[in-house]
Design a protein around this nucleic acid. Structure first.
Lengths: 142, 142
DNA sequence: CAATAGTTTAGAATTATTATAATGTAGATT
DNA sequence: AATCTACATTATAATAATTCTAAACTATTG
């Protein structure tokens, strides 16, 4: 979803009812300059603040998953205790800062196209993602 | 840990007490031809069978983490509901079969070395891992 | 073989996520 | 605009993975 668009229309277009909660969620997610990486908990807090009232955890889970299914959000693979999501739904790679647990997008120009020479019979490739784990320079190598 | 080695000695070498549970875990993990990918639950079942008695979940968690810290095991990044571990601790990439939830190793020759042109100030790169998600050919693209 | 430091264990606690069932609401129909 | 209906939201319960705890146990040291 492009920023500053009419979220009510956008939601309707893909068959999601524009409820108060979903519109607020859109505002939090897409009214911003940059790509946004978040966990469900981050989002609950931010939407609650934005609305000046509580939003239910279940609603955020449901809506995030609805958005994901519609291609508004992308889940990012971190072997962590929790799930991360990304408003940048295009194929791209990430840095993960192991000190702060922050995700950083990788521009296309940062990593060459990855060529996979192995083939798995009867299977097709759904995605190819690179995760670069970084940490403070003065820490011991993992 | 190479296969068929003396696990008691190996454990001692890195400062882990060779208990009955740890030795059995070594046997399950390393007395095999190929790399082994597993979840904690897989391992609990296999060790219990091997020992012909129950092993506590907590012990498996503790010991897996101890082995990971000592470099005997490597955790693999899947944004899943559970953690996967790998007896192949060298830097390498994976296929993840989204139908069967199986991990498959990627040989060095299957993917070219990945060159990262981005630099994050004050941070060093700990690891670069590629995850290739595959699924049945006749399924809709994710 | 006793001391002790590390280990295992069952079960409780915690955390992320999903399910449930009652209530609320958007949009269509009158 | 009142009503209907399907979908949404909510609080709460359920589930699942993982970690914590404190007591019992055991490998090593002296």
């Amino acid at each position: 979803m492009p920023k500053n668009c009419n979220f009510i229309e956008k939601l309707r277009e893909v068959g999601l009812r524009p409820t108060k909660q979903r519109i607020k969620m859109c505002e939090v997610l897409y009214n911003r300059e940059d790509t946004f990486h978040f966990t469900i908990n981050d989002l609950v807090k931010m939407i609650s603040e934005e609305m000046n009232e509580k939003i239910s955890l279940a609603t955020v889970y449901n809506t995030v998953h609805a958005f994901e299914k519609k291609g508004y959000l992308k889940e990012i693979s971190i072997n962590s205790d929790k799930s991360y999501f990304d408003t940048n739904t295009s194929a791209h790679h990430h840095f993960f800062d192991e000190d702060t647990h922050q995700l950083i997008d990788c521009d296309k120009s940062d990593i060459d196209k990855i060529n996979i020479r192995k083939n798995i019979t009867g299977k097709k490739i759904n995605s190819v993602e690179v995760l670069v784990r970084v940490a403070s320079d003065n820490q011991t190598q993992k």
